[in-house]
Amino acid sequence: MTDELRGLLRESAESHLPDRARMLARVERGTARPGAARRPRDRGRGRTRTLSWPRILLATLATAGTLTASALTVVAVVHTPEPPRNPTAAAPTATGRAAPQPDGSRTQDGPLWADGSVDPHSNSFWAQSNVTLKAGEPLTALVVELRIALTEGVKDTGSWRTRPAADFDLSTREEGGFLVYRWALKPGRTVPSGEHVFAGQYDHAAGGRDAKDDRYRIDAATGAAGHGAAVWGGFG
């Protein structure tokens, strides 16, 4: 509803509000007429009946009440708020982008178990972070996201996984202070039950690197009904 239309409705409502002073004056004039209270009522058929002043008052008040209710109805319509135009979006599923990384850890959820670790073959200039996944049932949807904090010298040098590369869409990007590796299972593909590893490889500044801020998250679905499971955590 536009502001112009609201204004027109409000003016219309105000124009129908009863004038209390004018109504009371009309009632007083009716009661002050000579002989008004003594005039006998004509009960004959086909002739107009004269109303006494109490009935005039009641009719006037009833009319005023009707007009007031109508005016309030119009004003209520004018001020009715419009519904929100931007409803909250639905949360992502396991087949879409992984949800934001929460704090703490949850390493098991139903048939899904995971662990994060720095590969023992890492050295003073290069490292590999492994996300190990164990599935108790075949997975019909899977998103694995590995986040490496952008400490000094961190730069992507590659990635790998124990499952066939053709089964996944892989993306690597820098986002919010992290180097992010993301593997998403392609529609129609499945991951069998068992143990699987997803790894990101990167250079870093000389010396030991602290992995305390690195994170991982896995979102998966199992079975035809697509029952969801999610696990997340850090790196020891």
Results as ranks from 00 to 15, higher is better:
residue 2 T to F: 04
residue 3 D to W: 10
residue 4 E to F: 15
residue 8 L to Q: 13
residue 11 E to S: 14
residue 15 S to T: 10
residue 17 L to I: 07
residue 19 D to H: 10
residue 21 A to L: 07
residue 27 V to F: 04
residue 30 G to E: 07
residue 31 T to L: 11
residue 32 A to W: 07
residue 37 A to W: 05
residue 41 R to T: 15
residue 44 G to N: 11
residue 49 R to K: 12
residue 49 R to Y: 07
residue 50 T to V: 15
residue 53 W to T: 15
residue 53 W to K: 08
residue 55 R to S: 11
residue 55 R to G: 05
residue 61 L to E: 03
residue 62 A to V: 08
residue 65 G to R: 13
residue 66 T to I: 15
residue 72 L to K: 08
residue 73 T to D: 08
residue 76 A to F: 06
residue 78 V to K: 01
residue 78 V to Y: 03
residue 79 H to C: 03
residue 82 E to W: 09
residue 84 P to M: 00
residue 88 T to L: 14
residue 88 T to K: 12
residue 90 A to G: 12
residue 92 P to A: 05
residue 95 T to S: 12
residue 96 G to Q: 03
residue 96 G to E: 04
residue 97 R to V: 04
residue 99 A to F: 05
residue 102 P to L: 09
residue 103 D to H: 12
residue 105 S to N: 08
residue 107 T to Y: 10
residue 109 D to L: 08
residue 110 G to M: 09
residue 112 L to E: 00
residue 113 W to Y: 09
residue 115 D to E: 14
residue 118 V to I: 11
residue 124 S to V: 14
residue 129 S to N: 13
residue 135 A to I: 07
residue 137 E to L: 15
residue 139 L to R: 05
residue 140 T to D: 10
residue 140 T to G: 15
residue 144 V to G: 00
residue 144 V to N: 01
residue 150 L to K: 15
residue 155 K to I: 06
residue 156 D to H: 03
residue 159 S to T: 09
residue 161 R to F: 02
residue 164 P to E: 00
residue 166 A to I: 13
residue 166 A to V: 13
residue 169 D to R: 09
residue 169 D to I: 06
residue 169 D to P: 00
residue 170 L to V: 12
residue 172 T to L: 07
residue 173 R to H: 13
residue 180 V to N: 02
residue 184 A to E: 06
residue 184 A to Y: 00
residue 185 L to Y: 03
residue 191 V to N: 05
residue 192 P to D: 06
residue 192 P to Y: 04
residue 196 H to N: 03
residue 198 F to A: 03
residue 201 Q to S: 12
residue 204 H to I: 10
residue 205 A to L: 06
residue 211 A to K: 06
residue 212 K to H: 14
residue 217 R to G: 14
residue 218 I to E: 02
residue 218 I to K: 01
residue 218 I to H: 01
residue 219 D to P: 02
residue 220 A to Q: 04
residue 220 A to G: 04
residue 221 A to E: 03
residue 222 T to V: 15
residue 225 A to V: 12
residue 228 G to L: 10
residue 228 G to D: 05
residue 234 G to T: 05
residue 236 G to L: 04
residue 236 G to D: 07
